[in-house]
């Protein structure tokens, strides 16, 4: 295995020692570029009280390339498709090496708080969201209850 860049070690240490509230990220023991992530649904959003599992992978070129992030928990969200892929500019074209794991995860949490149905990834969800926002939010809440419920 290629040696882990200092930057990744640093970020990992910081994530563990000084975690972001509502977000955890633990590196996989076999592959320190692979993180298991949980994000709490932001308060006031339909995802409130849900805990969502994600996976995050730092490619070899990181930080020159964006980390790859994906939801593992099912979620009803116009910018997240059924494979868990996320439509977020900083993960694609607007990636900058000045960003880091921490900021990426915060952005994802923010995306949960403010879905953007006008730039959809999951078209059916987005349509639903535009036509009947309240109904869509209720459905999102249902899904959160069903799939992302807090485990004891």
């Amino acid at each position: 295995m290629a040696s882990l860049p200092k930057r990744i070690i640093k970020e990992t240490e910081r994530l563990v020692s000084d975690p972001v509230p509502g977000i955890t990220a633990t590196p996989h023991e076999d592959n320190l570029r692979y993180f298991q992530v949980t994000i709490e649904g932001p308060a006031g959003s339909p995802y409130e009280n849900g805990i969502f599992d994600l996976e995050l992978y730092l490619p070899d070129e990181y930080p020159m390339e964006a980390p790859k992030v994906r939801f593992l928990t099912k979620i009803y969200h116009p910018n997240i498709d059924r494979l868990g892929r996320i439509c977020l500019d900083i993960l694609k074209t607007n990636w900058s090496p000045a960003l880091q794991i921490r900021t990426v995860l915060l952005s994802i949490q923010a995306l949960l708080a403010s879905p953007n149905p006008n730039d959809p990834l999951a078209n059916d969800v987005a349509e639903d969201w535009i036509k009947n926002e309240q109904g869509a939010k209720n459905k999102a809440r249902e899904w959160t209850e069903l799939y992302a419920h807090k485990k004891n």
Binding site: N31, Y57, K68, K74, R82, G84, L146, Y147
Partner: peptide, 14 residues
């Protein structure tokens, strides 16, 4: 099992 169809432990990479 509320997760999507694959298991993260088996798939550290995409």
């Amino acid at each position: 099992n509320t997760k999507l169809s694959f298991n993260p432990h088996d798939a550290p990479m995409k």
